[in-house]
Simulated assay, not measured.
Amino acid sequence: MDAGAQAEPALESLLDLAREAATLKLLAERVTAAQRSVKARTQAALDLASRRDGVERIAATLPGGETVATISLRRGETGPVVVDEDALARWVRRTYPDEEWTTTEVVRRVKPWKAAELLAEMEAAGAPQIADRATGEVHTVPGVVVRPTRARTHALTWRKGGREATAAAWRTGQLTGQLAALTAGGDAEDAPV
Score class of each variant (00 low, 15 high):
residue 1 M to A: 14
residue 3 A to I: 05
residue 5 A to I: 11
residue 6 Q to W: 13
residue 7 A to K: 11
residue 8 E to C: 01
residue 11 L to Y: 05
residue 11 L to C: 06
residue 12 E to D: 15
residue 12 E to M: 13
residue 13 S to G: 09
residue 14 L to P: 12
residue 14 L to C: 02
residue 16 D to M: 09
residue 16 D to Q: 11
residue 17 L to M: 15
residue 19 R to M: 10
residue 21 A to I: 12
residue 24 L to T: 01
residue 27 L to F: 10
residue 27 L to A: 12
residue 27 L to P: 04
residue 27 L to H: 12
residue 28 A to V: 03
residue 29 E to H: 11
residue 30 R to E: 08
residue 30 R to P: 11
residue 34 A to M: 06
residue 35 Q to A: 13
residue 37 S to D: 14
residue 42 T to V: 09
residue 44 A to R: 14
residue 44 A to Y: 09
residue 45 A to W: 03
residue 46 L to C: 08
residue 47 D to W: 03
residue 50 S to C: 12
residue 56 E to A: 11
residue 58 I to L: 15
residue 59 A to M: 11
residue 59 A to D: 15
residue 59 A to R: 10
residue 60 A to Y: 00
residue 61 T to N: 14
residue 62 L to R: 04
residue 64 G to E: 10
residue 68 V to F: 00
residue 68 V to H: 01
residue 70 T to M: 09
residue 70 T to F: 02
residue 74 R to W: 05
residue 74 R to Q: 10
residue 75 R to D: 15
residue 76 G to E: 08
residue 76 G to N: 06
residue 76 G to K: 03
residue 81 V to W: 00
residue 82 V to C: 10
residue 83 V to R: 08
residue 84 D to H: 11
residue 86 D to H: 10
residue 87 A to I: 01
residue 87 A to M: 01
residue 89 A to R: 03
residue 90 R to I: 02
residue 90 R to E: 07
residue 91 W to T: 00
residue 92 V to F: 06
residue 95 T to G: 05
residue 96 Y to M: 00
residue 98 D to V: 02
residue 100 E to W: 02
residue 102 T to Q: 01
residue 102 T to I: 05
residue 106 V to C: 03
residue 106 V to D: 14
residue 109 R to W: 04
residue 111 K to Y: 01
residue 111 K to S: 05
residue 112 P to M: 07
residue 113 W to E: 14
residue 117 E to Q: 07
residue 117 E to W: 13
residue 118 L to M: 11
residue 120 A to Q: 07
residue 122 M to N: 05
residue 122 M to L: 02
residue 123 E to I: 01
residue 123 E to A: 13
residue 124 A to R: 08
residue 129 Q to W: 00
residue 131 A to F: 00
residue 134 A to S: 09
residue 136 G to E: 08
residue 140 T to M: 01
residue 141 V to S: 03
residue 142 P to Y: 02
residue 144 V to T: 06
residue 147 R to S: 10
residue 149 T to P: 00
residue 150 R to P: 00
residue 151 A to Q: 13
residue 151 A to F: 07
residue 152 R to Q: 13
residue 154 H to L: 09
residue 157 T to C: 02
residue 160 K to T: 09
residue 162 G to I: 08
residue 165 A to N: 08
residue 166 T to F: 04
residue 169 A to V: 04
residue 169 A to G: 03
residue 171 R to P: 02
residue 172 T to D: 15
residue 174 Q to T: 00
residue 185 G to D: 13
residue 187 D to H: 07
residue 190 D to G: 14
residue 190 D to W: 01
residue 190 D to P: 01
residue 192 P to H: 14
residue 193 V to Y: 10
residue 193 V to G: 12
